[in-house]
Amino acid sequence: MTDLIAPATTRKDWASDQEVRWCPGCGDYSILTAVQLLMPELGAKREETVFVSGIGCSSRFPYYMNTYGVHSIHGRAPALATGLAVARPDLHVWVITGDGDALSIGGNHLLHALRRNVNLTIILFNNQIYGLTKGQYSPTSEAGKVTKSTPFGSLDHPFNPVSLALGAEATFVARTHDMDRKHMMETFRRAYQHKGAAFVEVYQNCNVFNDGAFDAITSKDNRPSMLVPLEHGKPVRFGPDGEKGVVLDAHGSAVIVDVSEVGEDALLVHDEAREDPALAFSLSRLASGPYSPTPIGVFRAVERPDYGSLVEDQLADAAARKGPGDLAALLRSGTTWTVA
């Protein structure tokens, strides 16, 4: 069987027969397209691919992929996917989630999937709003957000999902946005190829309940001056003419500077492979929300044994030491006596 090469697939092969039911103009469409276009390029097999989701608009995603898929319950996708990935290390398991699903009701599961480094590709659609329940503020909504449930403005301080993932010591952390298919595909490709838990935050526009939330940074005009592309081994630099850059100050905080003032050599050179997550964390703090220059790309990509492989190692080790399980012997492993 090793000689067989999987027949090449096309985008069509990855689309299910289900009608896509997101609102017209939703950013989810472009993410779906990016994933469907990417799968053939990755040479992935549909039968070995599973999309697991929770609840929310984004979590309808699995229905639209012609793969195996589970649309589970609110917040629990990382937990269900953990069981699947650990039981079946041969599969490629994706988790599709949103800001409410992953960071509010399911916050605990996301953190633990990341710290365990379960072999999962986790895509978090962040639109900074609850869409499916029709427009309440989410854990990533900006403070003061006026919504149906916060007519006088939200009092909650928002999460920064990238900081959160780094805080959980995720081994792969990236950010992309729904307006740039090429960047999305490249980011998803890196996430897919990462062994262990890969976390990607996608800034995604909800054109019904939070339209334009990311316009300040993702609109075509604003991108050059507001998106800070992170590229491994390169100075962190942005602006229409690369006139802005990032340096670390004396406290280790990333700050934006004019390149002309500090000189090119003073710029921070991005190192996604650095074991210490502090550098990536400083970069994640550069912007507190999508209103000021915001880094996108891979913040962190380090190697650490993935959870499923460690589980397999323990099973193999136990079998090597004790031999394969012998049920009759197990039942007699305590003190026994015989009644004639």
Binding site: V70, R76, A79, L80, T82, G83, A87, L91
Partner: peptide
């Protein structure tokens, strides 16, 4: 949920 995920995978 993990047990259910494993069951989905055939365990």
């Amino acid at each position: 949920n993990a047990a259910l995920g494993a069951a989905y995978g055939g365990a």
